[in-house]
Design a protein around this nucleic acid. Structure first.
Lengths: 230, 230
DNA sequence: GTCTATAACTAGATAGAC
DNA sequence: GTCTATCTAGTTATAGAC
């Protein structure tokens, strides 16, 4: 159980501060895309933003904090791109595939420094960890998106399973992200293959939970997941 | 598909070099345990080892390379500890549980800096990534251990499933490690609970693959895993 | 060629004045 | 809020010793 720690995030109180903060974030994003994370120095970010090094640190506690903006950006873009797919897909498999493929599309421009990205996110103490309190809004938004995948679909499964499905699908998405990070094929061809092949499988597994022999096991999985959240 | 990159590892050619290398690794391990990863400086490691800073870098390309020794140590200790459990367990569930619990026991002393550990391992380009070529020996040893879990057990499942089971169980172990890294409960109580609850579930799921309706899905999973390895 | 050492460089982070 | 000056520690360059 994570102890709840208070994190001091310098939220700008004035309009001027807001503008400065945005300038720094924008400069960082541009430089990360141009040169990648490692080759972008805090000094270069500050210079491009037109502020001093010390001032950049006033708004962002560390270089890693500048990454959070990408997290948020991808999340927002993904939701928009997924909605387009969800609008015309009615089957569970179609909706899930559309949503996952939309993520791969949206994330592509950032792949070349996704390693650093992921590295930071993997540290438990990091606010960028997908399990951290700070990431709760983005995580909940992603789970909510998976809920929309399930809700609009032609899916008949036990209520217990259905209730936990969005969170389980989010976890599956984390698995896709893990694969994607390691995928150096052109255009993330291999990740797309993984999605195309795994989705029908997931579809099949989910529907199998209606089988008497399988349902008990599925309920146990649900109970386990619930107990881990506590 | 990972491109095969040549990695220059300075393997000492003389006995003296070997001794120096060992002294540095030993000093690093002691300091990491005493103060943690972040608070251990390369200068401190060099000093404790009785060598210059530059010399430390001659043997270890970066501070992160010093972590590899822990990887190897845990792997060796885990195999030994697991053998003890495997010697008197005959059921699949018992053998799996003993092996996973042995890992939690062995890894406990290193938990306080496991975050850094994991952070480094999460970067795809890192030689410490569990999927990297450099980690192949340790990974293969872990998979081989899982093969021993399966081989000595009372398990009747389709041959296709059985063939991939060691690797799938290794993947499950990675999941336990991920949970463990984030687990701040005393004595890793929650991770142990996870193992205790998940093992019977895995046992049940594996045996379910004999059901006609489930077997097809299981074969698809096996096929997917195989295609991803290519 | 294999090792080892010293000095210098780089960039993330902090302290304190304004 | 913003700046300048400074600190720290990972890393590299390079010269020389075995």
């Amino acid at each position: 159980m994570a102890t709840l720690t208070t994190v001091t995030v310098p939220v700008p109180r004035s309009d001027k501060g807001e503008a400065t903060r945005a300038a720094i974030a924008t400069a960082a994003q541009a430089l990360f895309l141009e040169r990648g994370y490692d080759k972008t120095t805090m000094r270069a970010v500050a210079e491009r933003a037109g502020v001093s090094l010390g001032n950049a640190y006033y708004y962002f506690g560390s270089k890693e904090h500048l990454i959070q903006a990408f997290y948020d950006r991808i999340q927002v873009e993904h939701t928009a791109a997924a909605e387009a797919a969800l609008a015309h897909e009615t089957t569970f498999a179609g909706r899930l595939r559309g949503t996952l493929t939309a993520w791969v599309d949206v994330a592509e421009p950032y792949h070349h420094f996704a390693g650093k990205f992921f590295k930071v996110a993997a540290e438990p103490a990091s606010p960028l960890s997908p399990f951290s309190p700070e990431s709760a809004p983005a995580r909940e938004a992603s789970v909510a998106l998976m809920a929309r995948v399930v809700d609009g679909a032609d899916l008949k499964v036990p209520a217990t399973v259905r209730g936990e499905l969005p969170e389980l699908l989010w976890l599956a998405q984390m698995g896709v992200v893990l694969f994607w990070v390691h995928d150096s094929s052109e255009g993330r061809r291999r990740t797309r293959q993984l999605v195309d092949r795994a989705v029908p499988l997931v579809d099949r597994l989910v529907r199998l939970t209606r089988l008497p022999g399988v349902r008990g096991a599925a309920d146990d999985i649900v109970a386990l997941v619930r107990s881990l959240r506590a």
